[in-house]
Amino acid sequence: MAGKKLTHLDDKGAARMVDVSEKPVTSRSATAKGRVKMKAATLKLILDDGLKKGNALEVARLAGIMAAKKTSDLVPLCHPLAISKVEVELRPDRKSNAVDVEATVQVSGQTGVEMEALAAVSVACLTLYDMAKAVDRGMVIGDIRLTRKSGGKSGDYKAK
């Protein structure tokens, strides 16, 4: 990491938005994952569509998609992007009493979509919590991470 510097700080340490105007438009993609752990009874209610607030998995999917589209409003210094695709998958894991969340975001643009994928996962997880908190305030949101990205100057990345 020697020689690398943070791109969102100027020479005096002040925050700045990175200038991407000279970067070429390329196809870029990013995937992030996260998990919400809960009681077995909570997962059963979610899967049986038994929550008073409605279908938690579908509401969380929609919330994740919306979050990807609004990332530049939520995270300072993120560029607004014309996102071309957002997929949010929610996979129940009965053995672990959890829901695994994965989001993939694609764009043809001058900057990547890692933050958009991470925002989608984060908000989908938060929405699951919100939908089920009346029956289980002990849910744990975690393991949110970038798992893959492609395109751009820095090339491809795949988590180990």
Rank of each mutant, 00 (worst) to 15 (best):
A2S: 14
G3I: 13
L6T: 07
L6R: 13
T7Y: 08
L9Y: 15
D10S: 14
D10V: 11
K12H: 12
R16C: 11
R16L: 13
M17Y: 03
D19H: 12
V20N: 08
P24E: 15
P24V: 14
P24Y: 15
V25T: 12
T26R: 11
S29W: 05
A30T: 11
A32K: 07
K33M: 08
K33L: 12
G34A: 07
G34W: 06
K37F: 11
M38D: 06
K39G: 05
L47D: 08
D48Y: 04
D48A: 14
G50R: 04
K52C: 07
K53M: 13
K53V: 09
G54Q: 04
A56Q: 05
L57H: 05
A63Q: 03
M66C: 10
M66I: 09
A68E: 00
T71K: 01
D73G: 05
P76Q: 02
L77H: 04
C78D: 00
V86F: 06
V86D: 02
E87N: 09
V88I: 02
L90F: 07
P92V: 03
R94T: 15
K95T: 14
N97L: 06
D100R: 04
D100C: 10
V101L: 02
Q106N: 12
G109E: 02
Q110Y: 12
Q110R: 15
T111C: 05
V113T: 08
C125I: 10
K133I: 07
A134W: 04
V135L: 04
R137S: 13
G138N: 12
I141Y: 04
D143T: 02
S150T: 15
K153D: 07
G155N: 08
Y157E: 07
K160F: 06
K160C: 06
